[in-house]
Amino acid sequence: MRYLSIVFVAVSLIACDQPEAKEPVEYKGPLREVENMEMFYTENDHVKVKMQAALVYEFLSGDREFPKGVYLEFYTEEGALESTLKANNAYFFKEQNLWRGRGKVEVKNIAKKEQLNTEELFWKQTDQKIYTEQFVTIKMQDDVIYGTGLDAKQDLSDYVITHPYGDVGYQGEE
């Protein structure tokens, strides 16, 4: 009996010296990091979109983060530069196939010489639409429009400002 007591005490002491097993922690950070990325999206052998980013993080979910910003160029079927989009940082939500740009977001329509500025903008690539609920400024050749909220084509060729501010002049024929 005394022998069993000694074995029990020895096993207890050894068990106390063993570190406790911890639960594994699931890694949720980026799986891949890309620097100085330049990517082209083509259709029928024509470049449709050119994307540049200084840093890209790719996650297990397929989401991508662009913490140092993103710059995109959109081209017509004929290969002419149609519009540009840049943002201080961006995020691509793969499941929704949705882009979000933040911080000094700028969209330019080259042909119309118009420019949109806002602090946050969403881009639905499949619909070729951009939208925001934030304050927007649209600079045209002869006028500037301010407002809150916007729904537009990605090239800014057609847009609606949800709540425009100030005088919006009519430039049609009388």
Score class of each variant (00 low, 15 high):
G69P: 07
A87L: 11
L81F: 08
Q128T: 06
N117H: 11
T118S: 12
W99Y: 13
D127I: 00
P67A: 07
N117V: 06
K112A: 15
T84W: 10
I130H: 02
F59G: 08
E120G: 04
G101E: 05
F93D: 11
L98D: 07
G62P: 01
F92Q: 11
S83H: 14
R102W: 09
G101D: 04
E106D: 09
K112M: 13
F122S: 03
R64N: 06
N88I: 03
K124P: 00
K94E: 13
N97R: 12
Y71Q: 07
L121A: 00
I130T: 08
R100N: 08
L116A: 01
P67S: 02
L81V: 04
R100E: 14
F59M: 06
L85E: 12
D127P: 03
Q96G: 02
L81I: 10
L60P: 08
Y131F: 14
E119N: 10
K68M: 13
K104V: 08
F66C: 04
Q115I: 09
T76I: 03
N89H: 14
E78H: 11
S61P: 05
R64M: 12
K113I: 12
L98T: 09
K124Y: 05
R102P: 08
F93E: 12
F92V: 11
Q115F: 03
Y75Q: 02
Y131A: 04
E78Q: 12
T126G: 00
A90I: 07
L72P: 10
N89C: 12
G79M: 03
G69V: 01
E77Y: 01
Q128F: 08
L98V: 05
R64C: 05
R100H: 05
T132W: 07
L81R: 08
E78M: 10
I130Y: 02
